[in-house]
């Protein structure tokens, strides 16, 4: 059971990290260059609205390596929330602060790092929370569809296998482990959000009465 957990976790976390890095980079590019928005956004939306369970078999045919196939599935579902929430964050910079930076005659890079990215941080984190849960779902879905056992099988494979063998207790234990993993990811992500925002953002501020 434990090696299976490691496999699932590995796919989940790697997909989430990829989603964070690419989501933020693409959001910045879209925000800075209109042409990127026009050329990328339609594909991003199509990928987002198509259910991952429907794309997964295709990905498995196209990608030989099952690990990469699972990674792509998990990445697909967790990418879009981060992209769209970061983009909204970048766009909703307080216009008064924007004026302030205009008076300081800052260039685009300075404005991005000193104003726009920090403003987008709470938005990004709310997308990150959604994506963290989704990447686990994506990883499980991918394992279900590939259905490949052996050394690289994850928790979802254990569920399939034990359902064929009618090993209900094993099935339950895999299910509970998945749920606990989800809760664990949720707690870690909330902790990150708390550490980053506690000092200044309303959402994580400790109120004193």
């Amino acid at each position: 059971m434990f090696p299976a957990l490691i496999v699932t976790l590995y796919v989940t976390i790697l997909a989430l990290l990829l989603a964070v890095v690419l989501g933020v980079i693409v959001a910045i590019l879209i925000f800075q260059f209109k042409i990127v928005e026009i050329s990328l956004m339609p594909y991003a939306i199509i990928l987002q609205v198509t259910p991952v369970i429907a794309i997964a078999p295709l990905i498995i045919i196209l990608v030989d390596n099952t690990f990469f196939a699972a990674l792509i599935c998990a990445w697909l579902v967790s990418f879009f929330p981060i992209l769209s929430s970061t983009l909204i964050g970048l766009k909703s910079v307080d216009h008064n602060l924007d004026d302030l930076f205009k008076l300081y005659k800052t260039n685009r890079i300075q404005k991005l790092f000193f104003l726009q990215l920090p403003s987008a941080l709470p938005y990004f984190l709310s997308g990150f929370k959604i994506s963290a849960g989704l990447s686990l779902i994506g990883a499980i879905v991918a394992e279900f569809v590939t259905g490949i056992g052996g050394s690289s099988s994850g928790l979802a494979y254990i569920i399939i296998e034990s359902s064929y063998r009618l090993e209900i207790p094993k099935m339950f234990s895999a299910l509970v482990l998945i749920a606990l993993t989800g809760v664990g990811i949720f707690l870690i992500v909330n902790l990150i959000s708390y550490i980053v925002l506690r000092k200044w953002h309303e959402s994580e501020k400790i109120k004193e009465y």
Partner: peptide
């Protein structure tokens, strides 16, 4: 400005530092 327009993620010192840091 009419509002203080401080950057909420910076403390008082860093807010005052901002115009210098940008230069």
């Amino acid at each position: 400005f009419q509002d203080p327009n401080l950057l909420p993620w910076l403390n008082v010192f860093d807010n005052v530092f901002l115009p210098l840091k940008l230069n």
